[in-house]
């Protein structure tokens, strides 16, 4: 069981989190070509090694975080908050 350090809650077991998707994939433009769409939707990389991914801290603060994880060793290099509240409140 991995230990993922939530930027809001601190180190928590991975059972508190749910994996969402690979991070940094971008999103298809409204006028995306068919091959771009199929690649985006269905042809994802499955890298051996470092991988950026989105997790949600479901049983904690509920925030989405970006985790940099080694798919081979499960080492976690960095966990970052995604939602930037820019001091409006």
């Amino acid at each position: 069981m991995m230990l993922i350090t939530c930027p809001f809650c601190g180190p928590r077991a991975d059972t508190e989190y749910v994996y969402g998707a690979a991070a940094g994939q971008g999103y298809p433009a409204p006028d995306a070509q068919q091959h771009e769409l199929t690649e985006y939707l269905f042809l994802r990389d499955n890298p051996k090694g470092w991988h950026r991914e989105l997790w949600v801290h479901r049983h904690g603060c509920g925030q989405w975080v970006e985790v940099e994880r080694n798919t081979l060793t499960h080492e976690i290099r960095q966990v970052q908050a995604l939602l930037q509240h820019e001091g409006k409140e």
Binding site: L54, Q63, W64, L82, L83, Q84
Partner: peptide, 13 residues
């Protein structure tokens, strides 16, 4: 809920 929050966090912050 997580679908909505993910869009807000990652896509349209």
């Amino acid at each position: 809920h997580e679908h909505l929050t993910r869009q807000l966090a990652d896509r349209w912050p």
